[in-house]
């Protein structure tokens, strides 16, 4: 039900929203994950405590914890149903704590990159 509390607030001008990927938070004790081909979603980077650990240079001093943010970007136009299918496939092999859909707002990404 719409009330004054929901309709009277400050509104930000809205932009068209496009689903472009999904961040999945994987828990593993076996180091940096290696993923199968998931078709509609392709791994772009993996970070640990916000620091990119794949692909590219990783300091041998870097302390890794057992929780990795894995960014999967859509390889084609995707829907929420595609995300459901992808996560169902991922669940067969990986333990994950959360997933966050990645949206573009107009031309701007609504998500940060890893350091």
């Amino acid at each position: 039900m719409l009330t004054k509390a929901t309709t009277g607030r400050a509104k930000r001008p809205s932009k068209p929203i496009t689903l472009v990927g999904v961040d999945v938070y994987i828990i593993t004790e076996n180091g940096i994950p290696q993923f199968d081909d998931y078709g509609a979603f392709k791994i772009e980077f993996i970070s640990n405590r916000g620091t990119k650990v794949w692909p590219g240079y990783v300091s041998e001093d870097l302390m890794l914890v057992n929780w990795y943010r894995c960014r999967f970007m859509a390889t084609k136009t995707v829907t929420d149903a595609d995300v459901d299918t992808f996560l169902a496939a991922l669940t067969k092999k990986w333990k994950w704590s959360a997933a966050q859909k990645l949206w573009n707002y107009g031309d701007e990404a609504g998500f940060s990159k890893a350091y």
Binding site: K15, R49, G50, Y105
Partner: peptide, 25 residues
């Protein structure tokens, strides 16, 4: 110097709500 809200994990979770993960290990 490496964790907390500096983990650079930020998302616009709706068109009017932004979130930043505070990661402490």
């Amino acid at each position: 110097n490496t964790e907390d809200s500096y983990a650079a994990i930020e998302h616009m979770v709706s068109d009017e709500v932004a979130q930043c993960l505070k990661v402490i290990t």
